[in-house]
Write a protein that binds this DNA or RNA. Structure first.
Lengths: 228, 228
DNA sequence: ACAAAAGTGTTCACTATACACCCATGC
DNA sequence: GCATGGGTGTATAGTGAACACTTTTGT
């Protein structure tokens, strides 16, 4: 190890954990229990530990904050924030990760998740601590873009899902209504996007819907373009 | 300042400086003059200084490495790399930036740029130091994607350019031939992409071409999709 | 029978592609 | 004139939005 005369940083990972509940696009937030920004809402996150890569820390924090184990979440890096004054405690750089979960029941006691709650994503921001409104906005924009080009939407759904559920994800995240009939054709026609399981599921009323799983595709071609 | 029991990092910025020269998509590399990886090619970059944000460091490094002043380069964050063993000197996290320049003559003496040179981007990587092959691949993929959705291609051109020059950028970066006639119509027809200056430029032989500047658009809609 | 939701067929407008053709210059 | 590259017109195929219509269930 040679001399290192450079600035020293702490490195954190912040999570933008998203889901769709009902018709709402929501994000997981925690109430801060320590200064600075005591009592304010913030994105869950924490510092890297020895031997950890960024993705390791993101996976660990996600498990801690949700209290859920054995998830196979979609996790993708968004970008890094390191403005000199972004944290009053000193120079802290944070790497934001986008995490996508299906609408699962969350443990509410005995874990870090006790202080966590879902909030609907609103334009104009949520008044979060630090620069977390900006981070949230960047992550949301990335999620909206990924819905166009990747099978990300399937990560919002459980293992088996109907086309109507998949469409609800697009409508909630993009905030626009889509034609159910045309969406059905596009989704089932895109190579590798979804594969039928052969099973059916009956809604409260109406014709049963075919069930699908996510397909092998890692990119959607052609993309599912959102309306102008 | 309260106690901070966490891991300490050095934070670097690495640049993927791209241009199109002739028909080739090229990247700026430097030969390392110190250990580790002495003598190997690497991406230009350096550590953050006190008071600097990431983008400040990227702009400063770009000016230092190219020896060019007064550029208004396109600069965009790619992603961050922080694997525990990526730098043998210790824990160094690096934030990669994509920089796009037109094909300019580079100073070759008296500056850091003396040790810099352009190399064509090849599939399979260039055998760079550290994890720079991976960083380069990620940045190149980002550039290819941005050509579809943003006016990024204009950043590869000088202030005034012909449609044929713009097309050469797409062909070089995507590595595919495009129909000159259809490309002309698309590029001039996309709202806010390019605006005619009214001037003309004569090629060595053939009809003079109209000159354009980049337009006000920040996104291309509909996107200029690359062929499957 | 009726309501509700799933899924298919069809129309029509628009867009992309291929390529014939014309234009403006240097030699 | 001829070669060369710039730019326009046009036929054709393909794609996407709108929506009528059929299917399959629960009550």
């Amino acid at each position: 190890m040679i001399e290192r005369p450079h600035l020293s940083f702490e490195l954190a990972v912040d999570l933008v954990v998203c889901t769709v509940r009902g018709a709402a696009f929501e994000v997981l937030l925690v109430e801060r229990g320590v200064e600075p920004y005591l009592g304010r809402l913030a994105l869950p996150g924490g510092f890297l530990r020895a031997g950890e890569d960024l993705i390791d820390a993101a996976v660990r924090e996600l498990a801690e904050e949700t209290g859920l184990s054995g998830l196979d979440p979609y996790l993708e890096q968004v970008r890094t924030y390191a403005a000199p004054d972004r944290d009053p405690r000193g120079r802290v750089a944070t790497v934001a990760y986008l995490a996508i979960l299906p609408d699962l029941p969350m443990p509410t006691a005995g874990t870090d998740a006790a202080g966590a709650r879902w909030e609907p994503v609103r334009r104009g921001g949520l008044g979060l601590a630090f620069d977390h409104d900006r981070i949230l906005a960047d992550a949301v924009e990335q999620a909206r873009r990924l819905l166009e080009n990747t099978p990300l939407a399937t990560a919002f759904c459980r293992t088996e899902f109907t086309i109507a559920e998949l469409r609800a994800v697009y409508e909630a995240v993009w905030g626009v209504p889509l034609d159910p009939r045309n969406f059905h054709r596009k989704a089932t026609g895109l190579p590798g996007f979804v594969v039928p399981t052969g099973e059916m599921r009956s809604p409260p009323t109406g014709r049963p819907a075919a069930l699908f799983r996510r397909g092998p595709a890692t990119a959607l071609y052609p993309p599912l373009q959102r309306p102008a």
